[in-house]
Write a protein that binds this DNA or RNA. Structure first.
Lengths: 116, 116
DNA sequence: CGGTATCCCCACCGATACTG
DNA sequence: CAGTATCGGTGGGGATACCG
């Protein structure tokens, strides 16, 4: 019961695009659906939608709908979601160091894997 | 290119059992295969093996084989793997707070989900 | 513009049985 | 003891098309 609750955080960040989405909302502040699409070119609408919905469900992201034509929906990070940022930053930093570690180990070829 | 490299860390922690394994190796120090099995009763040998191999591949875990009968294999966390621990601890702490957050939101029922 | 709906694939994981 | 081998289910995620 006093086990590893790190999985709780991982579950919330679990999803191919969630860290990237949070990253962009973190630096870009409030963003529209289409702006997120532009920021993350490889993501499909379906994926963007589902990942955002899950983040919204977990109260990490706020979804603001403007009832107008054409539609407008804005996404932002909640105060609660902000508390995740130390973790994300730490992982981000660690990720960069890990790339250096890979280069030292495999001679720099592996960096192409992780670099998107 | 200067995107979110948090995914690199997530990839390494990605896998149903990796955080738990690291958690146990973190508090238990060096552990044998069977000791890990006892510590994580629900894991199968196959999963334990594959998760350990991936962690080993990423240089997070060290595998020490003793050539003897009966066989003996010990797993421990590498110095490099130690650098992951601030992240895991942060996630662990965050996970506990998140459970409180869930209780406030859903009235305590949700805690049964996350509590294993 | 901001989504659904649908189809499909494959990586992940579980169960079980066998082995040096 | 510490693993492989094999089979099969499941669902996360991709491609594409359609909708209010």
């Amino acid at each position: 019961m006093e086990e590893c609750k790190a999985t709780t955080a991982i579950d919330i960040l679990n999803g191919k695009w969630k860290p990237v989405i949070l990253y962009h909302l973190g630096i870009g502040g409030t963003l529209r659906f289409s702006e997120l699409q532009k920021a993350i070119p490889d993501i499909t609408k379906k994926m963007l939608t589902s990942q955002l919905r899950e983040l919204e469900y977990h109260d990490v992201v706020h979804r603001e709908v403007y009832l107008q034509i054409p539609p407008k929906v804005e996404y932002s990070i909640t105060d609660y979601g902000q508390t995740l940022f130390p973790i994300i930053e730490l992982m981000h930093d660690w990720g960069q160091k890990h790339m250096l570690h890979l280069e030292q180990k495999y001679g720099g070829e592996a960096s192409e894997q992780v670099a998107e």
